[in-house]
Amino acid sequence: MGIQVYFIYPGDLDTATGGYRYDRRLINELRELGIKVETIALSARFPFPDARALEHAAHTLGALPSNALVIIDGLAYGAMHELVEANTKRLQIVALCHHPLALESGLTETQKNDFQYSETMALQAARAVIVTSPHTATILQSDFSVPAQKIVAALPGTDAVEFAPCNGNPLVLLTVASLTRRKAHDVLIDALASVQELEWQARFVGGEHFDPKWASQLRQQVNQLGLQQRIDFAGSVDDLLIEYQSADVFVLPSRFEGYGMVFAEALAAGLPVVAASTGAVPDVVPPKAGLLVPADDVAALSSALRRLLTDKKLRKKLQTGARQTAANLPGWRHSALKVTALLNKLTSDMRESP
């Protein structure tokens, strides 16, 4: 009899973010490997659940059969520690942590502390924790007291794709990220304003529904700086590959990234990258493929953009580096095999326990 796992996530699995794309692809790969995966949606109010959302989550976990293998996405997992603790002896619960909720930008000090406590308790109650980068594994060990032996790193995969020609005129600067504070579009807009005498067009691809107020502020910022003809808020798109292959440079100065799937996808398309040296980004983007600057540093970001926009030789050098890096990016099957090995181990341990 094959392994069955229940994969639990908040909201809509088709949501266009890196985290949900990781979930979708992992689920598909696990199924191809013979794992039976049943998907279950929780309230979209997570990671800020109200009483009704928590009641629904409690009912959902309570309805699962005893000893069931359960993977819970971190967007919900870190905000439901009491439910996890109440079910940890009955279920084989695995947390999937893209990055700690407490490290999200724009939180109040109270929210940050609440997430820190809740996620610490929930992660310690898990049978195992899947992370999407060694960097996140290190953070969970040092800041959330998660034992190293409980952590499995299953990096996001990439697919081999045709390289972008990178011959735009004007050059197209691509950003792929939901319009949230952590992604630092505000820093990028200010940096672009300081190089507006140069020839370029920018596309901001990403949904606005996670933080509509912040998205509105970004649009106002663009209008106030007179960049509305230069920066296109493209919203969510169905085919990101077209975006990557139509771009010349990928730029995203996130304040923190647990991994940063879009950086790997940009490299897979052979795009030079400009990013902030924060979180796991330096592990994904090597010096030969991109320019990394300090987070929240408008002047440094502006300088990097100016260099790339005016130095064709540098762009070509980084483009070559990106193409070389693409050859060594991890694949999705490798990630799924690591998760499958974990599920097999948990199943074996469960059978051997009295």
Score class of each variant (00 low, 15 high):
188 L>G: 03
311 D>E: 15
162 E>M: 06
146 V>A: 08
52 R>N: 12
297 D>I: 07
95 A>T: 11
273 V>C: 07
32 E>D: 13
289 A>G: 03
21 R>Y: 03
322 A>W: 03
192 L>Q: 08
19 G>K: 04
129 V>Q: 06
306 R>N: 12
89 K>T: 10
325 T>K: 10
220 Q>E: 15
198 L>K: 04
129 V>K: 06
97 C>Y: 00
98 H>A: 01
127 R>P: 01
44 A>T: 02
351 R>L: 14
179 L>E: 04
187 V>T: 15
155 L>M: 11
273 V>G: 02
297 D>F: 03
275 A>C: 09
253 P>S: 10
166 C>M: 07
106 G>S: 10
190 D>H: 15
128 A>E: 02
246 S>Y: 00
281 V>A: 05
178 S>N: 11
133 S>Q: 05
129 V>L: 04
185 H>S: 03
43 S>A: 13
18 G>L: 05
161 V>T: 14
8 I>P: 07
116 Q>R: 13
70 V>T: 11
59 H>G: 02
287 P>S: 08
110 T>E: 13
284 V>P: 01
132 T>V: 15
261 M>D: 00
131 V>D: 02
48 F>W: 08
110 T>S: 12
231 I>M: 04
259 Y>T: 00
185 H>G: 02
153 A>F: 00
252 L>P: 01
52 R>Y: 00
309 L>N: 09
332 W>Y: 14
60 T>E: 05
22 Y>W: 11
194 S>L: 15
230 R>D: 03
183 K>I: 06
124 Q>P: 03
11 G>F: 07
268 A>D: 02
64 L>H: 05
177 A>H: 08
137 A>F: 00
246 S>R: 09
64 L>I: 11
184 A>H: 12
285 V>W: 07
304 A>G: 13
69 L>H: 13
59 H>Y: 05
36 K>W: 05
75 L>T: 13
40 I>R: 15
109 E>C: 02
157 G>P: 08
263 F>T: 08
188 L>Q: 13
301 L>H: 09
342 L>M: 11
166 C>S: 14
139 I>Q: 01
161 V>N: 10
198 L>A: 09
18 G>M: 06
194 S>R: 15
64 L>R: 08
159 D>C: 05
40 I>Q: 14
285 V>G: 02
118 S>Q: 14
76 A>K: 05
331 G>D: 13
342 L>R: 09
214 W>P: 01
152 V>I: 15
213 K>A: 02
61 L>P: 06
263 F>D: 03
325 T>N: 04
72 I>G: 06
